[in-house]
Computed example of a mutant assay.
Amino acid sequence: MHLVFLTNEYPLEGVIHGGVGTFLKLLCPELARRGHKVTVLGLSSISEKQVVNSEGVNVITIPASSQLKPKAIFNFRRLNKELDKIHLNHKIDVVEGPEMSFSFIKKIPGVKYLIRMNGGHHFFSEAEKRKVNLWKAFMEKRSFSNADAICGVSRYVMDHTKKYIDFSSKEGPVIFNPANLENFFKADESKVVPGRLFFAGTICEKKGIRQLIQAFHIVHEKFPHTELFMAGRDWFYPDGTSYTEKIKEIVSKDLFKSVHFLGPLPNSSIPQWIESSEICVYPSHMEAMPLAWIEVMSMGKPFVATKIGPAFELVDDGLSGLLADPLDANELAEKILQILENQELKESLGRNAREKVLREFTLEAIADQSVEYYQQLIS
């Protein structure tokens, strides 16, 4: 098969990427290793078209439109033109992309267009309790209308998007995000720094940073040796104010030396931080299917997360992790303390977490499910 993935964030040097980029960096090379032709197509603020072969994946980046409005339409014209060239050179079987990928796509006869839902505009508008942007809502609905099939990274993201967009006639399976078991290896418990708590992700309100710091005040009062380390890029308010600087205001003076904002770290260093931590804490207010949680579980580390939509598809509460109310700092602190006070629980949570990943979230299993679905679409 020839599979084309639409994304502007495939992880190459200098490319800022999120969960979709991380996911594709795992799946695309695996598909190429299996003998499929894999092309990634995206836009960037570059002056000339760039083509890079990375692990057997042909990554094509074309210049984004400099038009102010409506930029999306001009960008889609460029994508459509490039897709025609790719198809002419080697027939495309499936084009895959996230929610808004096909808003103004010019469909090529014989090619199937698949949306893999990772959480789109309607989903996150609901989760963040904000109004939808009319233009973005229109684009997303138009994209779903143009798609031939829809799958999702969690049952939760599919069910909640259905409240706004009817795609029942095109609905496919839930295919989870895979674990990166090469980078996120089984942790060596001899490297644990006692009392170290760790978080990785964007430093912003919806990742639960406020509740995490509030909970840490409670934990530190009982266990003064504990320290909290938070790794991730800063988030900025519309007026340019740093969220990190604002949130530091709730850190008491007594805890200044025990709360550490590490800033953005290379992905290659995250496993070492997870390995050296006694507990990982990821108190998100919303997620579609959190790769960061899968990374912690892959390493067999005890962790505390929150009772949000897809959490129950990923974590067996009390067995492979502990879940707390994302808005309740007291409950979050209680879960952290449970692990700190119970060595047997700490060990069993980590062991069960890794076993669950090995059963359900391996790259091989996710690739198998994806290939089976692609073949089903084109047959």
Rank of each mutant, 00 (worst) to 15 (best):
K253G: 13
K257H: 15
S277V: 09
E278Y: 10
C280I: 15
M286V: 09
D254L: 08
S276Y: 09
H285N: 05
M286Y: 13
P264V: 05
C280Q: 15
I294D: 07
L255G: 11
L291P: 00
A288D: 00
K253P: 14
A292C: 10
A288M: 00
L291Q: 00
S277N: 10
N267H: 15
Y282W: 09
M286Q: 11
P266M: 09
I294E: 03
N267D: 08
S269V: 09
Q272L: 14
F261R: 07
P264G: 05
C280K: 11
W293C: 04
A288E: 01
G263T: 00
G263H: 02
V259R: 12
L265Y: 03
S258V: 04
F261S: 00
M286F: 13
M286L: 11
I270L: 06
P266V: 01
L265D: 04
S258Q: 12
P266I: 05
I274P: 06
V296N: 03
F261I: 02
H285F: 06
I270K: 02
N267K: 11
H260Y: 11
L262M: 14
M289V: 01
P271I: 02
V281D: 02
L255T: 11
I279F: 04
P283V: 00
I270S: 02
M289T: 03
S258F: 11
S276L: 10
Q272D: 13
H285L: 12
Q272P: 09
E287R: 03
P283R: 01
F256Q: 15
A292Y: 02
I270C: 01
I294F: 08
S276D: 03
S269M: 03
L255F: 13
E295L: 00
F261C: 07
P264K: 13
S284D: 02
P271W: 05
F256P: 06
L255D: 12
I270F: 02
F261P: 09
E278H: 12
V259W: 10
A292E: 01
A288V: 00
D254C: 07
E275D: 09
Y282M: 11
C280E: 12
Q272C: 11
S277R: 08
P271L: 02
S269K: 08
W293D: 06
M286N: 14
K257D: 14
S277P: 09
P266D: 09
I279V: 14
L255S: 15
A288F: 02
P290F: 00
S252D: 12
W273R: 03
S258L: 07
N267C: 07
P266T: 01
E287D: 09
I294T: 06
V281L: 03
P266K: 13
M289R: 08
S268M: 04
E287K: 05
S277C: 12
W293N: 03
E278A: 11
V281Y: 02
H260N: 14
V259Y: 12
E275F: 10
G263L: 03
F256C: 14
V296G: 04
S277L: 10
I274A: 06
E275K: 12
L262Y: 08
F256L: 15
G263Y: 00
W273Q: 04
D254A: 12
